[in-house]
């Protein structure tokens, strides 16, 4: 278990580092896919099989593809040869190291820091429970529906924002 965790953690962190430093944007998107697969493997290690599947289907299958589309649509000014980082990258690195150090100190002082995972109750089907909870009015029906309305509104808004109305009217004339 520990070996598996270390392998997937190394894959996740290494490819995440490549996402933020690699020069070509399309490569950054592919490294992001590797990171997302690593995170899905970590969910599987945490006995959250459904989360691992959702991670692959939603993140890799939808969000990463959306990123690749956006990168290809904005490719003309891609500046693949220019430096990928702006001139403040030193301060940015300092800030992110500080945030990691701060988070680590916070966690260090927490009493449950080295807790082990409790045994899962035998014969309990988490996925069935999760599915029931998402459609039970007493449980999470309302947040679930609100999330879907949010997603619908965001997608309609995205179509509206990205729609090139001016050029379309000119093309129709």
């Amino acid at each position: 278990m520990k070996i598996l965790f270390l392998i997937f953690a190394a894959i996740t962190l290494g490819s995440a580092f490549m996402v933020v430093t690699t020069k070509k944007m399309i490569h950054a998107a592919f490294w992001l896919i590797t990171t997302l697969f690593g995170v899905a493997a970590l969910y599987a290690l945490l006995n959250a099989g459904f989360m691992a599947m959702v991670q692959i289907v939603v993140y890799v299958g939808a969000i990463a593809i959306l990123f690749i589309f956006a990168i290809m649509l904005t490719r003309k000014e891609m500046l693949d040869s220019a430096a990928p980082l702006n001139k403040n990258w030193g301060i940015a690195a300092l800030f992110s190291l500080l945030s990691f150090a701060g988070l680590y100190t916070l966690l260090r002082n927490w009493t449950g820091f080295s807790n082990e995972a409790p045994e899962l109750a035998a014969g309990v089907d988490t996925i069935t429970e999760l599915g029931t909870a998402l459609v039970t009015p007493d449980a999470y029906l309302l947040p679930f529906e609100v999330a879907s309305v949010l997603l619908l509104a965001a997608l309609i808004g995205a179509v509206y924002v990205a729609n090139d109305a001016k050029n379309q009217q000119e093309a129709e004339k």
């Binding site: 996740t12 962190l13 995440a16 980082l85 990258w89 940015a92 800030f95 992110s96 988070l103 680590y104």
Partner: peptide, 16 residues
């Protein structure tokens, strides 16, 4: 925490 910090670096430092 490490993944979050790497993401923060990307947000602060990338041009694109």
């Amino acid at each position: 925490a490490a993944l979050f910090s790497i993401g923060l670096f990307g947000v602060l430092a990338r041009k694109n």
